[in-house]
Amino acid sequence: MDTYKLILNGKTLKGETTTEAVDAATAEKVFKHYANEHGVHGHWTYDPETKTFTSTE
């Protein structure tokens, strides 16, 4: 398992979190669920070199 990072740049919520996942697709599902639960619906990007997802509203 690898550690993946999420950076949230929402209108009402900003911050970072991490998750352990078997691959990027699994981490993306976890992070999108997390963002949706916190009302963040933004544009998603992923940097495979740093294993970092960013959601920007």
Rank of each mutant, 00 (worst) to 15 (best):
F53W: 05
K5H: 11
L6C: 09
T45G: 06
A24W: 13
S55Q: 08
P48Y: 06
A21L: 01
G10N: 04
F31P: 00
M1I: 09
T26G: 08
L6D: 03
W44N: 01
T18D: 04
Y46K: 00
A35V: 08
A24M: 11
W44Q: 01
E49V: 11
N9M: 11
P48W: 07
E16N: 06
E49F: 11
V40A: 05
V22T: 11
E28Y: 15
A25T: 10
G42D: 04
T19F: 12
Y46F: 08
L8T: 04
S55G: 05
L6P: 02
T26W: 07
N9Q: 09
I7G: 01
V22K: 13
E20C: 14
Y46V: 00
V40R: 02
D2Y: 14
G39N: 10
E37C: 12
Y34C: 05
D47S: 07
V30A: 09
K5R: 14
L6N: 02
T56L: 07
N9W: 13
G15I: 15
F53C: 01
T54Y: 13
G39S: 05
T50H: 06
V30H: 12
E16K: 07
T45N: 08
K29C: 10
T45C: 09
T56Y: 09
E28W: 15
M1S: 08
Y34D: 01
V30W: 14
F31K: 00
T19Y: 12
V22Y: 13
T50S: 10
P48I: 08
E49Q: 12
Y4N: 02
D23F: 02
G10I: 05
T12C: 15
L8I: 12
P48G: 06
H33G: 09
N36S: 13
K5A: 04
T19M: 12
T3C: 13
N9G: 04
T45D: 09
H33D: 13
A21Q: 06
T56K: 06
K11T: 12
K14R: 12
T54H: 07
A21V: 03
H41G: 09
K11G: 08
Y34V: 04
T19G: 02
V40P: 02
A27M: 01
L13G: 07
I7C: 07
G15D: 11
K32W: 09
E16P: 03
A35P: 01
V40T: 04
N9V: 13
T45I: 07
E49C: 11
K32A: 06
E16S: 10
K51T: 02
M1F: 12
F53H: 00
N9K: 10
L13D: 05
T17K: 09
T19W: 07
G39K: 07
K32S: 05
H33E: 15
H38Y: 10
D2M: 14
T17G: 04
T45L: 06
E16I: 12
H38T: 05
E49P: 08
F53S: 00
T52E: 04
S55V: 15
T18Q: 09
K32G: 03
W44Y: 03
L6E: 03
Y46T: 00
T52M: 03
D23Q: 02
E49H: 11
Y34N: 00
G42F: 06
K14W: 11
W44H: 01
W44V: 04
V30N: 06
E37S: 12
E57D: 07
W44E: 00
E28Q: 09
L6M: 04
K14E: 06
T54A: 06
L8M: 10
L8D: 01
E49D: 13
T26E: 13
T18G: 03
V30T: 10
T50V: 06
M1C: 12
L6W: 05
G10V: 04
D47Q: 06
I7H: 04
E16H: 09
E37K: 12
A25D: 09
K29S: 10
S55C: 15
H38R: 14
G15S: 14
T17S: 08
T50P: 01
D47C: 09
T18H: 09
N9Y: 13
T45E: 11
K51Y: 06
F31Y: 01
K5Q: 04
A21G: 03
K11N: 11
T26P: 00
T12E: 10
A24Q: 09
A27V: 01
V22Q: 11
S55W: 13
N9L: 13
Y46M: 01
G15Y: 15
E20R: 14
H38G: 04
K32E: 05
L6R: 00
T52F: 02
P48V: 08
F31W: 00
E16T: 12
Y46R: 00
V40I: 11
T18R: 07
D2Q: 15
P48E: 10
Y34E: 02
V30C: 07
E20N: 10
T54R: 07
D47K: 04
W44S: 01
G39W: 07
M1G: 09
T45F: 08
H33Q: 15
S55E: 04
V30M: 10
A25W: 10
E16L: 08
T12S: 11
K29P: 01
A21T: 04
V40Y: 12
G10L: 08
T45P: 00
F31V: 00
H38D: 02
E16Y: 13
T26C: 07
T3S: 06
K51A: 03
Y46C: 01
A25C: 13
W44A: 01
A21F: 04
K51I: 01
T54D: 03
V22C: 11
D47P: 00
Y4F: 09
N9F: 11
H41S: 11
T18V: 08
D23P: 01
E37N: 09
K29I: 12
D47N: 11
E20W: 12
K51D: 01
T3V: 12
Y46N: 00
E28T: 03
H38P: 01
L6Q: 01
T17P: 01
T18F: 13
E28A: 10
M1P: 09
V40W: 13
E20I: 13
A25H: 09
K11W: 11
K29N: 08
S55P: 02
E16M: 11
G10Y: 12
G39T: 03
D23G: 03
T19I: 15
K14I: 10
M1W: 13
I7S: 03
S55M: 15
T19R: 04
G15K: 14
L13T: 11
L13N: 07
E20F: 12
N9C: 15
E20P: 05
F53K: 00
H38M: 15
M1K: 13
V30L: 11
H33F: 11
E20K: 13
E37F: 11
T19K: 02
T52I: 07
T54Q: 06
G10W: 14
A25K: 11
L13E: 07
A35W: 02
G10A: 05
D23L: 03
Y34T: 02
A35Q: 03
T19P: 01
E57N: 04
T17E: 05
T52L: 04
T50L: 07
D2L: 12
T26N: 08
G10M: 07
H33N: 13
K29L: 12
V40L: 09
T17F: 15
H33S: 13
K29G: 08
A35F: 04
L8G: 01
V22F: 12
K51R: 13
T3L: 12
K51V: 01
G39R: 05
L8R: 00
I7T: 04
T50M: 06
D47I: 05
T12R: 09
Y4L: 03
T56H: 07
K5M: 06
L8S: 02
K32P: 00
L8N: 00
D47A: 06
M1Y: 13
Y34R: 02
E28F: 15
K14T: 11
I7W: 03
L13A: 09
K32R: 15
G42P: 04
K14H: 10
T56R: 06
A25Q: 11
K14Q: 13
L8A: 02
A21N: 02
A27P: 01
L6K: 01
N36T: 13
D2V: 12
T26F: 07
A21D: 01
G39P: 01
T50E: 06
G10H: 13
K29A: 12
V30D: 05
T18C: 11
W44T: 03
K14L: 07
H38I: 12
D23A: 03
D47H: 06
